[in-house]
Design a protein around this nucleic acid. Sequence first.
RNA 1: GCGCUUGUAGCUCAGCUGGAUAGAGUGUCGCCCUCCGAAGGCGAAGGUCGUGAGUUCGAAUCUCGCCAAGCGCGCCA
Length: 579
Amino acid sequence: MNLLSVINEKVINAFKACGFENAQTLVRAADRPDLADYQSNGALALAKSLHQNPREVAEKVVEELKKDDFFSEVSVAGPGFINMKIKDEELTKLAAPILTQEKVGYERPDNPKTIILDYCGPNVGKVLHVGHLRSGNIGDAVRRMMTFAGDKTIGDAHLGDWGRPMGLVLTELQHQWPDMPYFKSDYASDKGYKLPFTLKDVVEAYPIASAKAKEDEAYMEQAKKYTRELQEGNKGLRDLWQKFVDLTKGDTQDLMNQLNVHLDLWWGESTVNDRCMKMVEHLQKSGIAELDDGAWIVRQEGDTPPLILVNSAGAAMYAATDLATLEARMEEFHPDVVMYFTDARQGLHFSQVFATAKKTGIVPDEVKLEYQPFGSVNGADNKPYKTRDGGVPTLRFLIDSAVQKARAKMESGEIGRDLTDAEKDEISHIVGVAALKFMDLMNDKVKNYIFDEERMLATEGKTGPYLLYAMVRMKSVLEKLGEPKNNTLIITNPAERKLLLNLYTFPENMQIAYDNRAPHVIADYLYRLCQDFNLFYHDCPIKDADEQTKNSRLNLLKYTLKVALICADMLGLKVPNKM
RNA sequence: GCGCUUGUAGCUCAGCUGGAUAGAGUGUCGCCCUCCGAAGGCGAAGGUCGUGAGUUCGAAUCUCGCCAAGCGCGCCA
């Protein structure tokens, strides 16, 4: 049960009582809060299909609704809106049955699904950068939303750990550390061997290697050879490869932990290596793949260019790995939906892969494949964000910088004076990361946004720190003044009413966010909730109020905190107890 | 050339499965701490919704054309 469904039921019955059997009620929170709490646009839609005057239809329904003393006022406005105001007593009466529910009134309209979400996408040999922030952040937020809604979710990092880049890294590492045991013909084990290189060396090795390979043919041949031998299972290369894959994984894990981004699965391209070859062979034999200019391709419908499965050098392309990964996911998890969170430039690739997956039967018809593109992060010049020296900012740099600035803010302000150093460290990390994450999640994901560190860390305006501050206040007041004694609610002030009404709209907002895979809808809702709370806090003193009012306000506060924390959690924001 | 995405207040963005007076934030200007956390609150000013047509009782929203920006188009991922 939630407020929308309660009102909707009443409006449906009113329409029926007027002889309109299957009317769409189109009930929602009012666009004009000055005129109504909820509105129904059903009369407009109905009148259109019946070729009647919408106002007349609305008048009839309003007469019916007026009989219900749930409403304090029901009226027709404009071309045929039905405006409804709810009695304060009814509003407060519903608080306990709705707002104490675990999901505060959210009820999903369909059956739970199994959903695989492909996000983060780290590549071995490359540093995580601002793009991984978006992929991880958005993908994880959507995963959290779906988990809340009751779906079984699987977040997969989809590690880029295979192919030519691995051969290049192996080659360059050998050049720099030729004495490593892995390359010896009699290699058996590296037990007790201490690695001479670090993650830093690995990520530096890749660009060096690909530059060398372009100029030096022998070097390229070596890389190709290692790529092939790695795939064939050469033990030394396999062991060395595992070492630097683990370094990358560890680093990614650390960064994702810092961002509070959760991953369930670390399947890499290597995971599907064997399967990939078999799949390609099958497509070749079945005639779906055809040879063209030495490459194996799958033709697409219309003007869509063909998908390249295997290049003319015989190497599987990433479309092939993606298809093999899909095949593996189907077998292992039988998902209803698979979604990909990658930047907006890969649209063509995924439309080819999806079409091919369906055409070949790798993915059954009933399984939905969703491409969820996101825009780029731009600098003040509206071009992809760069650091001052012109480089691509690494994810670690972005996090460190945000945390450091949050800390500086704490030191310079008058706040947090009573915090210990350890507390300051912990809290500035939470605040800095929240600033970064919220800036990334607050806008529609397909759009580019402009990275502005000053603004994202500001405490005024629509920012992470503003939200955290509001929630910290809620916690703090509740802790100081204690739990309410019973769950009776009364309305004595417009700010209380506004806040309460807003709490009731959580289910609707949740549904919109879910349907559109849109964390920014939750972000926006949470922001409005915090605004309403701040007004309530300002206008409605609790401590010195009479017993009944105090109790009621504590209840309202408790409910607000509960909903706010649910939203914050869906966005992957941690909320400290003080700041 | 074909395709994808975007264009809303000075700036950053909501609203886009058709509905009322297009909303926030920021910036600008003014106001509010003897009071549970002022990292807060209140108010004012600010818009030909890129543009032109069409559909409709009604369009920021749907359709088409045009303009502008970004991106993608077989052997990288």
